[in-house]
Amino acid sequence: MLPAIIFRQMQRPMSAGALHLGGSTALEHVLGVGGSSFVNCLNRYAAATGFIRISFLDINQRRNWDVARLRLYADAKKQSLHLRTIQGRDLLQGVLDKQRAEFIERKNVLVDDIREARHKVQERVREKIVEIREERENIMTIPNLLTISRAILSPYIGYVVVQGDFTLGMSLLVVAGITDLLDGQIARRWPSQASKAGSFLDPMADKLLMGCLVVSLCYSELLPMWLTGIVVFRDVFLLAAGFIIRYISLPPPKTFSRYFDATHVTAQLEPTFISKVNTGVQLATIGISLGAPIWNYLDHPMLHGLWYLTGATTIAAALSYVINRRDTFKIIQKKT
């Protein structure tokens, strides 16, 4: 760098005395060497080449100019760095503010969604509570009490028949038949006494009565075995179907207590016409067969004919429930 700073080509020559007088002290100050000997050396080199001249004044000016330029450059760099720092800080602050705004917006949206979902759940729970309350009904009505009394009386009637007390058995059968007629008449005449639970309780009580009587009569040899099997099979089939319908129609949760809760009605049974006819025929057959040892007409041909008629109507009633299963029971839908 020394030749580039202190040497330059001159357009006009300069005397050795002027070089010695003007730059001796400056050159000694800049280069740290004796001015006289150094200038003499340069002058001899310049005289030999005719190309290089030295200006000690230019050296001082160049040095001062370079220092000022460096200071300006440093100040410019410092100012530029400061501006970039401010710009970077502003940019970072803008990004942070934008991210914060997006986060707050997302948080508000999430909070609104949670509140809306909670509101919907609360509304659904209220609807469920209302539906359950609406599905429950008062089962302690007069027709249901008569039906339950008939169901309780059925095993005792069977026991009396097995013991051979046919007269008492006939009397209890008449009482059971009267309760069967009364519960239907009361439910039809007074709608407030009707209940959906009664549509299941009444046929089940009839099936229990028929089952107890046909088994006890078969044990007492007053009813043939084949007819007893047909009647019992149909009743067991209908009872199993009733339990299945109860399970299907019961809304969640399907707990044991809710399953056997008679006040929680989930379906309604509508017996077919042939089933109603068969119930009347079965009651007549049971009563006439039970009266055979009392009025002495055992093995009468008309009694055998009545047995065959009862068997035929029993099979037809069972088939009617299978064929018209969509019309025989109705699942109580939830109200919307």
Rank of each mutant, 00 (worst) to 15 (best):
Q193W: 05
A205Q: 02
D206Y: 01
A197S: 15
G211L: 12
W190V: 02
D202R: 02
G211Y: 05
W190G: 00
S192A: 12
P191N: 05
L213C: 13
L223D: 12
L222V: 05
M204I: 09
M204P: 00
A197E: 15
K196Y: 13
D202I: 06
C212G: 05
K196V: 05
F200H: 03
L222Y: 04
Q193M: 09
L217Q: 03
G211P: 01
D202E: 05
A197K: 11
M204A: 13
L217V: 06
V215Q: 02
K207I: 13
L213S: 07
S220K: 14
L217S: 05
A205T: 03
L223H: 10
G198R: 04
R189D: 10
C212N: 09
P191V: 13
L201E: 08
V215D: 04
V215E: 03
L209E: 02
M204R: 04
M210L: 14
G198E: 04
L213P: 02
L217M: 10
P224D: 00
A205F: 02
V215I: 14
R189T: 15
A197T: 15
C212D: 09
L217T: 06
D206M: 08
A194V: 07
K207S: 11
L209T: 03
A197V: 15
K207F: 14
G198F: 01
S192M: 08
L217F: 06
D206S: 14
K207C: 12
A205C: 04
Q193E: 15
Y219T: 12
Q193T: 09
P224R: 00
S195L: 06
A194S: 15
K207Q: 12
A194C: 13
Y219S: 10
S195D: 03
K207M: 14
V214N: 01
V214E: 06
C218L: 06
L217W: 08
P203T: 01
S199L: 09
Q193R: 06
G211R: 03
R189P: 03
S199N: 05
S220I: 06
A194H: 10
L222D: 02
E221T: 07
P191R: 08
P203H: 04
P224F: 00
P203E: 04
V214F: 11
L213T: 08
P191E: 05
Y219R: 07
S216R: 02
R189N: 14
P224T: 00
P224Q: 00
G211M: 14
Q193I: 11
A194K: 13
R189S: 15
E221S: 13
C218W: 11
L223N: 12
A194T: 13
E221H: 13
F200M: 11
E221A: 07
L201F: 15
Y219L: 07
W190I: 06
A205N: 01
R189F: 15
G211N: 11
L209W: 03
A194Y: 07
P224A: 00
L208S: 05
L208A: 10
L208Y: 01
S220H: 03
V214T: 08
V215K: 00
V214L: 04
F200I: 11
P191D: 04
S216N: 02
A197H: 15
L209K: 01
